[in-house]
């Protein structure tokens, strides 16, 4: 191979390696892009599920009453007792309510767990607003510790008329045995 050809080969190889690096970076860029996509289309949006600020419809109360149900689950390999204090509440849209979930650490050692909320039906999710929730942060438990954890919420007055029953469900996951977690 002559020298100009060799140089040209090296140049093209370098450009192609740059493409490879670009593709690798693109793979990681898919992570935030995925969130953006979910946000735009409104499917499974994390922001919406974890919404803390009261929306425009909060404040004045509404005449109607809707039922909010509470459920709790623990994945098969998790060792927790985890259940809501109340299984359902009658609430008026626009008013602030408070309830608790009780969790007990059965691991026999320090453990950190985190609850992931989910609301059904999906189209009601954006109207259930949590102003304070134990799901916002990892929860650290000492061995065999048991405690109640608070969730404050309101149902937005903009809730479509057809919905009179919402379910707020939490799954409680292990996130590690370390300290308070991040």
């Amino acid at each position: 191979m002559n020298e100009p050809l060799r140089r040209s080969n090296r140049g093209l190889t370098a450009k192609l390696l740059l493409m490879v690096a670009g593709s690798f970076a693109f793979g990681f860029a898919l992570v935030p892009l995925y969130d953006v996509f979910c946000e735009v289309t409104g499917i499974g949006s994390r922001e919406r599920l974890l919404q803390a600020a009261p929306g425009a419809g909060a404040g004045a109360t509404d005449e109607r009453t809707v039922t909010v149900e509470f459920t709790a689950s623990v994945p098969a390999n998790g060792r927790w007792e985890f259940e809501p204090a109340a299984f359902e509440m009658q609430v008026q849209p626009g008013r602030l309510y408070e309830t608790t979930y009780r969790a007990k650490n059965l691991h026999g050692r320090d453990m950190t767990g985190q609850a992931v909320p989910s609301v059904a039906p999906a189209r009601a999710a954006q109207y259930l607003q949590k102003t304070e929730c134990f799901c916002f942060t990892p929860q650290h438990f000492k061995g065999a510790e048991e405690r109640d954890m608070i969730v404050r919420f309101s149902v937005d007055r903009g809730l479509p008329a057809g919905i009179d029953r919402l379910t707020l469900s939490y799954a409680f996951y292990d996130v590690g045995r370390g300290g308070a977690g991040t």
Partner: peptide, 14 residues
């Protein structure tokens, strides 16, 4: 190959 193999490498790295 150049366009997608690195994306897969990124996925399994995650």
């Amino acid at each position: 190959l150049i366009a997608v193999m690195p994306v897969f490498a990124g996925g399994v790295t995650m």
